[in-house]
């Protein structure tokens, strides 16, 4: 299954994959919180590259803007506004072992499922056409958003507004 020809996209995939996995592992294993956020930003950027490989340019831009930009900065703010004494974390060996076992066995299951699944050939394109076939990805997505997905889109804007107001009222210092 992996004996594909080595071409540009393939190399790019492995490079991005290496960046992402490395960033994720670093995120888990680093000591200082700020370093963790920075390694996480690397994961986000790598993912954006993956999106480009998958002909999803608009999603890639959104990924860079929102994740690598907004969410990371938000996390940095969160870190700055809270106190972190990472040094004296008491270890919880049982808990961490169990978590590792759980995560690993889940990965085992998923990997088994992926290897077992007989993935059929790509057929005819569905709604909006195949991502590779359209010339202007952003235009196509915009059209879809404002035609077929208008209701979820509007709902989402309401959700964002509510989250925005809620975040403000939560984080605001309580009136004396």
């Amino acid at each position: 299954m992996f004996n594909v020809e080595v071409n540009g996209p393939f190399v790019a995939f492995f490079v991005f994959a290496a960046i992402m996995i490395g960033g994720a592992v670093l995120m888990i294993s680093l000591e200082k919180v700020v370093h963790m956020v920075v390694s996480m930003a690397a994961v986000f950027l790598g993912l954006a590259g993956m999106y480009v490989l998958l002909d999803a340019e608009f999603a890639a831009f959104v990924q860079v803007l929102i994740y690598a930009g907004a969410v990371s900065i938000l996390m940095v703010f969160g870190i700055m506004m809270t106190k972190h004494n990472a040094a004296k974390e008491p270890v919880r060996p049982l808990h961490e072992t169990l978590a590792a076992v759980g995560a690993l066995s889940l990965f085992g299951l998923l990997f088994y499922a992926i290897r077992q699944t007989d993935i059929p050939e790509t057929g005819a394109a569905g709604a909006g056409g195949a991502p590779g076939a359209v010339t202007d990805n952003t235009l196509a997505i915009g059209e879809l958003l404002y035609t077929g997905y208008i209701v979820p889109f509007e709902l989402l804007s309401v959700l964002l507004t509510v989250a925005f107001i809620g975040a403000i009222s939560l984080a605001k210092k309580e009136a004396e």
Binding site: L98, A99, G102, S105, L106, Y112
Partner: peptide, 20 residues
């Protein structure tokens, strides 16, 4: 919450393993 979610994950894994 950590313990609870850990228990939930382990339970889910066991369930999935049982089905598979």
């Amino acid at each position: 919450i950590g313990t609870y979610s850990l228990a939930a994950v382990i339970g889910m894994v066991v369930l999935a393993a049982a089905i598979i």
